[in-house]
Amino acid sequence: MERAEAEEARAANPGATAIIRSLAPFADGNPGAPARPLAVSPDDGGPAVRVVPARSIDLTVFFAYDSARLTPEARIQLEPLGEALRAEPLAGHGFLIAGHTDAAGGRAYNRRLSLARARAVKAHLVETYGIAPERLRVHGWGPARPKDPDAPLSRVNRRVEVSLIAPDRSGALRFVLPVADRTCTDLADPRLRTDLDLDDFRAAPTQRPCAE
Results as ranks from 00 to 15, higher is better:
M1P: 15
E2L: 14
E7S: 02
E8H: 10
A11R: 15
N13E: 10
P14G: 08
P14Y: 01
T17N: 02
T17C: 01
I20V: 11
I20N: 05
R21P: 04
L23A: 12
L23Y: 06
P25S: 09
F26H: 05
A27I: 06
N30C: 12
P31V: 07
A33K: 15
P37Y: 00
P37V: 02
L38H: 13
V40H: 02
P42R: 01
D43H: 06
G45R: 02
V49I: 15
R50Y: 06
V52G: 06
V52A: 10
P53I: 08
S56G: 09
S56P: 07
T60D: 13
F62V: 13
Y65P: 12
D66E: 15
A68E: 09
A68D: 10
A68S: 10
L70M: 08
L70W: 12
T71I: 07
T71M: 06
P72M: 12
P72W: 09
A74M: 07
A74C: 12
Q77F: 14
L78Y: 04
P80Q: 13
L81A: 09
E83A: 09
A84G: 04
L85T: 02
R86Y: 06
A87Q: 11
G92D: 02
G94D: 00
G94N: 03
L96T: 02
I97N: 04
G99M: 05
H100C: 14
A103M: 05
A104C: 09
G105C: 03
G105V: 04
R107N: 11
A108C: 04
R117N: 04
A118H: 03
R119S: 15
A120E: 00
K122S: 03
K122N: 07
L125D: 05
T128G: 06
T128M: 11
Y129G: 06
Y129E: 04
Y129L: 03
G130C: 10
I131H: 06
I131G: 03
I131W: 00
A132Y: 09
P133Y: 08
E134Q: 14
R135F: 05
R137F: 00
H139C: 09
G140N: 08
G142I: 00
G142R: 00
P143Y: 01
P143D: 08
A144S: 14
A144K: 08
K147A: 06
D148Q: 14
D148G: 08
P149H: 03
P149Q: 07
A151T: 08
A151F: 05
P152E: 13
P152Q: 11
L153W: 09
L153K: 07
R155Q: 14
V156M: 05
V156K: 06
N157A: 11
E161M: 15
E161P: 07
S163V: 00
L164A: 05
L164E: 01
I165T: 01
A166D: 01
A166N: 03
P167F: 06
R169G: 09
F175W: 12
D181T: 12
T183K: 10
C184V: 10
P190T: 02
L192W: 08
D195R: 14
L196S: 01
L196T: 04
F201E: 02
A203I: 07
A203N: 03
A203R: 11
A204V: 07
P205S: 14
P209H: 02
P209Y: 06
C210T: 15
C210Y: 09
C210Q: 13
